[in-house]
Amino acid sequence: MNKETYMGVDVSPLSYEEITKELNQRIQDNQQSTIIAVNPEKIIASQNDETLRDLINGSTYQIPDGVGVLLASRLKGGEIRSRVTGVDMMDRLLQMAAEEGYRVFFYGAKEEVVSKAISNIQETYPSIQVAGYENGYVQDQEALIQKINDAKADIMFVALGSPKQEQWIRANKERLPVKVFQGVGGSFDVYAGHVKRAPAPFRKVGMEWFYRLATDPKRIKRQMALPKFLFRVITKK
């Protein structure tokens, strides 16, 4: 695919439907794929962190999670037409797994969070095959690897926070039968009902960031990455 690049960071211009269609084919072809969410905060951080930049660019799909990436693409005449958020991408993969019979493994978050998230997911998708799960506090990593292998998982969601979750995926994916890995940050908390997303009208117009800022003013330092990112994109020749 032809990816767009902003400040040295690649971004996939594909929609949810295009990504899931490709992933379904890649699973059939026995190819491994990784998905990482990209936003202005992460792109800014990567400017002083070559390891983070390589981690992002080394993924199969860099989804445009932040509205700033969407705006940058429009300013530069790119092909990104809409955001592809991490939590919604996860939901599309859950739906695909339920429809195609893929086995799903969940790793990360607190025990009560991941177990409740799975319970709610099973209510939404009764036919989904949960291969297994483990909370994010497991100490024996070798036992975890063995558990995932024994589970014969096809899709795996890792919720350890970024970039820790992507580092874990990169370090272990070749030892696992999993075909699709996605680092999902706090998405388990959303599925567990512990964290509320912005109302649909905010998400529809790309103002989820504003809702989060209004409800949690402490996020202001993180949100400052947006104007800084757009300024650099606009002024870059």
Rank of each mutant, 00 (worst) to 15 (best):
M1R: 01
M1C: 02
N2E: 15
K3H: 08
E4C: 04
Y6W: 05
Y6P: 00
M7S: 09
D10Y: 01
V11F: 00
S15G: 07
E18H: 05
I19P: 11
K21Q: 08
K21Y: 04
N24Q: 13
I27R: 06
Q28M: 12
Q28G: 13
N30G: 05
N30P: 06
N30F: 03
Q31H: 01
Q31C: 07
Q32N: 02
S33T: 04
I35L: 13
I36V: 15
I36S: 04
N39E: 13
N39Y: 07
E41H: 04
E41D: 14
I43V: 12
I44C: 06
Q47S: 15
Q47E: 15
D49N: 15
L52W: 02
R53K: 14
D54L: 09
L55E: 11
I56L: 13
T60Y: 00
P64Q: 07
V69A: 00
V69D: 01
S73R: 00
S73W: 00
R74M: 13
G77L: 04
E79T: 07
E79W: 00
R81P: 10
R83H: 07
G86I: 00
V87Y: 01
D88M: 03
M89H: 02
M90D: 13
L94G: 12
L94S: 05
Q95R: 11
Q95L: 11
E100H: 06
F105K: 05
F106N: 05
F106K: 01
Y107H: 14
Y107T: 15
A109N: 15
E111W: 01
E111A: 06
S119Q: 07
Q122P: 08
S127K: 14
I128D: 11
Q129R: 03
Y133K: 07
Y133W: 04
E134F: 07
E134Y: 03
N135R: 03
G136T: 09
Y137C: 10
V138E: 13
V138G: 14
V138F: 02
D140E: 13
Q141T: 12
Q141W: 03
E142R: 09
E142L: 11
A143C: 14
L144K: 07
L144C: 14
L144S: 13
I145D: 08
I145H: 01
N149L: 11
N149Q: 15
N149Y: 09
A151R: 07
A151D: 08
K152L: 13
K152P: 08
D154S: 10
I155D: 08
M156E: 14
F157L: 10
A159W: 01
L160K: 01
G161C: 08
S162I: 10
P163N: 04
Q165R: 06
Q165W: 03
E166C: 09
Q167E: 14
R170M: 12
N172H: 12
K173A: 09
E174F: 00
E174P: 04
L176G: 14
L176D: 10
L176C: 12
V178Q: 04
V180S: 11
F181P: 03
F188E: 05
V190A: 04
V190I: 10
Y191R: 10
G193D: 12
R197S: 10
R197L: 14
R197T: 05
R197K: 06
A200Q: 08
A200N: 06
A200L: 09
A200E: 07
V205D: 06
G206T: 05
M207I: 03
L213S: 06
T215L: 02
R219C: 09
K221P: 12
A225N: 14
L226N: 07
F229T: 06
V233N: 05
I234T: 02
K236Y: 01
